[in-house]
């Protein structure tokens, strides 16, 4: 479903940094892949390349066989199929919770208002905040905001969901409610790529774990292998530090 081949990414400002070096990965439909690694190792950059928020400098990124880096590809079409959840939620503060979820259904999916409303109600119930439909995002707690953000992405009926540290900006007592929504999604068979420091989530939900360091994928494997006997020294070092 996602096929990443030999991707490089270099940032030039403020100074030249090679954020990704020769990154290749293959993610199957329905798979949940967790990406871990030290700060600055390129996890976010990797994830953002998957929906073209960053443009890779070399290689190929195929989503369902369509190459994102081919100039002929309509990137807006692909993005509608690839939902993204950000660390800082990025809800639209000038729109109510309901409007946040309705907007893209209307302008991208061209759904009728009643259809979009119906879908919104179902999703709000799914993430457990049906009573907040008319509220503006800044009035919600962080955990509630992140659940709205997940509902907003799901409203496009994406085939893939990308999560970039969805719980890192949350107070500890709210992390659980967001992880629960993500676990439900995983159980329903959603293809997910999740950057996170929540090792419990990785152990419980991930089909595979990718460990990145200095812009490279160092090690890939199922969580039981990963957390019990990693093959690389750098992975061991990293796991020792955080566990």
């Amino acid at each position: 479903m996602i096929d990443v081949k030999n991707v490089d990414k270099i940032f030039y400002a403020p100074h030249k940094i090679q954020a990704l070096t020769d990154v290749s990965a293959n993610i199957e439909s329905g798979e949940v892949v967790v990406v871990i690694g030290p700060s600055g190792s390129g996890k976010s950059t990797f994830l953002r390349c998957l929906n073209h928020l960053e443009t890779a400098d070399a290689g190929h990124i195929l989503i369902d066989g369509v190459d994102l880096l081919d100039p002929a590809t309509n990137i807006d079409k692909i993005r509608a199929e690839v939902g993204m959840v950000f660390q800082s939620f990025n809800l639209f503060p000038h729109k109510t919770v309901e409007e946040n979820i309705i907007l893209a259904q209307r302008v991208v999916r061209k759904r009728s208002l009643s259809e979009a409303r119906e879908r919104t109600a179902i999703l709000l119930e799914k993430v457990g905040i049906q009573d907040k439909a008319k509220v503006f995002p800044p009035q919600l707690s962080g955990g509630q905001q992140q659940r709205v953000a997940i509902a907003r992405a799901l409203a496009m009926d994406p085939k893939i969901m990308l999560f970039d540290e969805p719980t890192s900006a949350l107070d500890p007592e709210m992390i659980g409610e967001v992880l629960d929504v993500m676990k439900t999604l995983a159980r329903e068979g959603m293809t997910m790529v999740v950057v996170t420091h929540e090792m419990g989530f990785a152990r419980e939900v991930a089909d595979r774990v990718i460990f990145m360091d200095s812009g490279r994928i160092v090690e890939v494997g199922p969580p039981e292998h990963f957390f019990t006997n990693p093959s690389h020294d750098r992975t061991k070092l990293f796991l020792n530090q955080i566990l």
């Binding site: 993005r79 509608a80 950000f86 800082s88 990025n90 907007l103 893209a104 991208v108």
Partner: peptide
């Protein structure tokens, strides 16, 4: 900038994200 990224990640075009998300704010 996160506002633009959120809009674009939903599949909105550059123009749509300006019109519905950026300009009103």
């Amino acid at each position: 900038h996160g506002q633009t990224e959120a809009a674009r990640s939903l599949g909105m075009t550059h123009f749509q994200s300006l019109r519905y998300i950026i300009m009103p704010q």
